[in-house]
């Protein structure tokens, strides 16, 4: 190993130790204890919330914990059954060690980013997952905790975590379709995992997965009526049309309810913009827009909520035509 790499590796281990100690101690001092009582949910009409969350790095984990707890508190006051957070939720926690990083005027080399993420992201990921389990169980809400970067066997994945209202992990779903910059960092695309969310037919996928209609066809085929999509779009300027290329477009083709948790802010050089929203086929919304609820501002924080009528959705699904026969029967024939 070259001396530079050796030094970098040891320095990253130093940062990892520091990050782990700070996160553990801060959560021990804050952790909620007594579960809140919840009334029975209406299985056919879930109350859903989509979170818009600022992902800018934080210097104190306490601040991050408090903001999350405040969102859960609002969610429980709104009698929500399901809550969906954005992509990259643990990333702000890396700000805790930012003061020890060497200053740089230019973006780091992708290999440096990979080394940084491989060592540090699993620590933030585990902490985020543990905090979300505590909060979901405490407030009794089925929670799509967003997604986070983590490393398994030295391979980076960006994966969503689905947590039951009792606080148990239901599924960890890796992003299946990556952006180019993620591949440059060494992130690998993952498989589609089975997700049994109990009372509700919910699947979670991640951000760019919603660029591909095949994603929604797959999860619908597996039984999903609700598809949660944590996003963090690296777009300095929000564009409604660009945003409509994702989940909104997908639910028009595959009749399900799409729930988008959106990340905003400035995250390690990426300016993020996006609106939290809850989307249905246009025919199922009163104004024909396909938008059941959506944040008004693409740059701040907030929570949008809506009640989804699953019976009406099922009726509508029954009216959809089947793909006519044609030469497209061998569409994915080249697949291994």
């Amino acid at each position: 190993m070259k001396p530079g790499r050796w030094a970098q590796s040891h320095y990253l281990q130093f940062l990892a130790g520091r990050l782990g100690r700070v996160l553990d101690s801060s959560w021990r001092s804050w952790c909620p204890s007594t579960p809140s009582p919840r009334g029975p949910a209406d299985i056919s009409r879930p109350r859903i919330g989509a979170v818009q969350f600022r992902l800018s790095p934080v210097e104190s984990a306490d601040v991050w914990h408090s903001r999350l707890a405040a969102i859960f508190q609002r969610a429980v006051e709104a009698h929500l059954d399901i809550l969906v957070f954005p992509e990259d939720m643990p990333m702000p926690l890396l700000g805790v060690v930012r003061r020890w990083l060497p200053p740089s005027r230019s973006p780091p080399h992708p290999a440096q980013v990979k080394a940084f993420l491989t060592v540090l992201s699993p620590i933030a990921y585990r902490h985020w997952r543990m905090v979300m389990q505590s909060l979901a169980g405490h407030f009794g809400i089925l929670t799509v905790a967003g997604s986070g970067m983590t490393a398994q066997g030295g391979i980076l994945y960006n994966q969503a975590v689905v947590i039951s209202a009792g606080g148990e992990i239901i599924a960890e779903q890796p992003k299946m379709h990556l952006f180019a910059f993620e591949q440059d960092w060494g992130v690998e695309p993952g498989p589609l995992t089975r997700q049994d969310a109990g009372s509700w037919p919910l699947y979670a996928v991640v951000c760019n997965d919603a660029t591909y209609y095949e994603t929604f066809r797959m999860v619908r085929h597996l039984g999903a009526d609700l598809v949660a999509v944590p996003i963090a779009d690296p777009e300095p300027q929000y564009s409604e049309n660009k945003a409509r290329r994702g989940t909104w477009a997908r639910v028009q083709e595959t009749p399900v309810c799409g729930i988008v948790g959106a990340g905003t802010g400035l995250l390690f050089g990426f300016a993020l913009a996006g609106k939290a929203g809850i989307y249905l086929p246009a025919e199922l919304t009163a104004d024909g827009s396909g938008v059941l609820a959506e944040s008004l501002d693409a740059y701040g924080e907030g929570l949008v909520t809506a009640t989804v009528d699953l019976e009406a959705l099922h009726d509508f699904q029954g009216t959809r035509l089947h793909l006519p026969p044609g030469p497209w029967h061998n569409l994915y024939q080249s697949a291994p």
Binding site: M176, P189, P191, N208, Y212, E214, R217, M218, L222, A335
Partner: peptide, 18 residues
């Protein structure tokens, strides 16, 4: 967009089963 498609997954979970 095209190079990042996942026909292996589409076949396994949907297209090959319709």
């Amino acid at each position: 967009i095209w190079p990042r498609m996942r026909p292996d997954l589409y076949q396994r979970h949907w297209w090959g089963r319709t």
